[in-house]
């Protein structure tokens, strides 16, 4: 074990800083948690992979039938399935990461009550894990594009890691906040799926942002995933890029992260008492 110098245990202070050196010391545990979740998820390989493939594919199919064909939602001149799948790709990552992160404290209750480690690792690691599913879905996107004889723009491939990072920041920021609220108020857990469902409709996943009247677009853009999804689409499907959108998303994501971590740190020391 790495040895540590003297440290003290005291009643929690009002404002707790993030202990970066401690987080660094426990970095391996972060990998281990991610590794555990991926391992468990794909343990029964067939089911694990099949779910990652079929879930976005079927959602895309349903949305294409109802929104693309029947409701005739415009798709900025690209085939609707590709258009909606492109949005779902990042949206699915975001919603799974957010759900996982906000449940992470309750799911890992037995560990929290028995061992000390920086609790922040749990929501972070659970928000990182669905990146594997994201990668699988991304491959499906390329297959889908090949099927429609659509050539993706290279700009999209370059930008996707950054857009994923912004999604990770936003999902873990909000997820960390919800995780600590979840410990105290158990009913939040049941409201979250509904909240995420509502969020899907106010995020330009099934429709383009251009459908919204220009003077209301800023409201949509307060949602960090709007900028991320619109940027991904513009880059992949049209080869265009406007840095304002991801910059706004990143800004909002970082605010969420800071608020989330501050609240989390403030409540963290009591988790074991009320879990």
């Amino acid at each position: 074990m790495e040895s540590v110098k003297q440290y003290t245990i005291e009643p929690p202070k009002k404002f707790a800083n993030i202990n970066f050196s401690e987080l660094w010391r426990f970095r391996e545990l972060l990998y281990i948690f991610v590794w555990r979740d991926i391992k468990v998820r794909y343990k029964q390989t067939a089911v694990g992979v099949a779910w990652a493939v079929f879930q976005p594919l079927f959602t895309m199919l349903i949305f294409t039938i109802f929104f693309g064909r029947l409701a005739k939602v415009p798709s900025d001149g690209v085939p609707y399935p590709i258009f909606v799948y492109c949005g779902l790709l990042l949206w699915n990552y975001f919603s799974v990461a957010l759900t996982n992160a906000s449940d992470s404290m309750i799911i890992n209750e037995n560990i929290i009550k028995k061992v000390y480690f920086p609790r922040l690792l749990l929501p972070f690691s659970t928000a990182i894990t669905p990146i594997i599913d994201f990668a699988v879905s991304l491959i499906i996107l390329f297959i889908l594009m090949a099927f429609y004889h659509f050539t993706p723009h290279i700009l999209g491939i370059i930008l996707i890691p950054f857009l994923l990072l912004i999604s990770l920041i936003s999902a873990s920021g909000l997820g960390i906040l919800l995780a600590s609220i979840n410990v105290k108020y158990r009913d939040v857990r049941y409201a979250l799926p509904f909240f995420i469902q509502m969020l899907l409709f106010i995020t330009p996943v099934i429709y383009p942002v251009s459908m919204i009247p220009a003077k209301f677009q800023w409201i949509i853009l307060l949602n960090p995933m709007s900028g991320v999804i619109t940027t991904a689409r513009n880059a992949f499907l049209h080869g265009t890029f406007n840095w304002h959108l991801p910059a706004i998303s990143l800004g909002i994501g970082l605010v969420l992260l800071i608020v989330g971590i501050s609240y989390f740190r403030k409540t963290e020391r009591f988790f074991a008492d009320i879990l």
């Binding site: 003297q6 440290y7 003290t8 245990i9 005291e10 009643p11 929690p12 929290i112 009550k113 028995k114 061992v115 000390y116 020391r269 009591f270 074991a272 008492d273």
Partner: peptide, 13 residues
């Protein structure tokens, strides 16, 4: 073990 925080006092490790 730092699982829960004390209400008062101090421990030096």
């Amino acid at each position: 073990s730092q699982i829960t925080a004390p209400t008062t006092g101090k421990i030096t490790m």
